[in-house]
């Protein structure tokens, strides 16, 4: 058994520098399309190529609905004038409900127990959540723990579109979590049903079924984006405003920071 101890020590520290500093390793994030001012011709071509309806052209601006973007890359590949692309991963956005629960924030500022419910996920988001436990992200160092039972959970993390068969289990999990509790919806499927809705088995997004506090767009959002969501819940990072605010504004803010 000593070989494992030696191996473990020899491997050294792999953990990311985030949230202390920005993680710059290649391949940690798929990035997201960037809205803003585009020539009308280019914009309309892009909107046409987007089969999931994430892009729209409003008030002479190309607006990206990050809830719907499924990383099909059709607005950047196989097109003459591609859309601008942003890297980064701090995508977690809080919804308005958060204000009413401010008083509970202190309850979460040390450690979070997270219950993960897969409500019909394709496996990618779930795998990215699983990566949070690997040495690269090691969320334990930040006081985040996955728990198998809702009784000791603070945060309900949902991945995947809400399938019909999973409604009742999800409701049971939510009810079984003691107050105060937060809900994080991870991935485009959870936020909008993604490519799977509307249909007779998953016809609504999760926020219509449960109050969602933090939303993480992306399909799948990289582990760092999910980590960001947890940090938002713990009050250790400010939320991004990808979804709620105008996209170009957000872009400028990011630049300023």
């Amino acid at each position: 058994m000593s070989q494992w101890v030696r191996k473990g020590l020899a491997t050294g520290i792999k953990t990311t520098c985030y949230p202390g500093r920005e993680e710059t390793a290649p391949g940690v994030s798929p990035g997201l399309p960037l809205g803003g001012d585009y020539p009308e011709k280019q914009a309309s071509e892009l909107v046409k190529r987007c089969t999931v309806g994430a892009l729209s052209f409003q008030n002479h601006k190309l607006v990206v609905d990050y809830r719907r973007c499924v990383h099909c890359y059709r607005c950047i590949r196989g097109v003459t004038l591609p859309i601008a692309w942003q890297q980064g991963y701090e995508w977690a956005t809080d919804t308005n409900i958060i204000e009413t629960r401010k008083k509970f924030v202190r309850a979460f500022d040390r450690s979070l127990n997270i219950i993960v419910v897969d409500t019909g996920d394709c496996g990618a988001c779930l795998n990215e959540v699983r990566q949070l436990n690997n040495p690269y992200y090691n969320m334990h160092r930040l006081g985040f723990f996955i728990t198998p039972t809702p009784r000791e959970a603070d945060v309900l993390l949902i991945v995947g579109p809400l399938t019909d068969h999973m409604r009742e289990p999800l409701r049971k999990v939510y009810d079984a979590i003691p107050m105060p509790k937060w809900v994080i919806a991870v991935g485009a499927c959870a936020l909008s049903g993604g490519v799977f809705s509307p249909s007779f088995v998953c016809d609504e997004n999760i926020s219509e079924f449960l109050p969602v506090d933090v939303e993480v767009p992306g399909q799948p959002p990289p582990p760092l984006a999910i980590l960001h969501a947890l940090l938002v819940v713990a009050g250790l990072k400010p939320p991004a405003s990808l979804i709620t605010q105008s996209v170009s504004l957000k872009h400028e803010e990011v630049k300023k920071q």
Partner: peptide, 12 residues
């Protein structure tokens, strides 16, 4: 995969 293809799960 992410660096090579742009997406960690080889989408698109």
């Amino acid at each position: 995969s992410g660096w090579f293809t742009g997406h960690r799960y080889l989408f698109g």
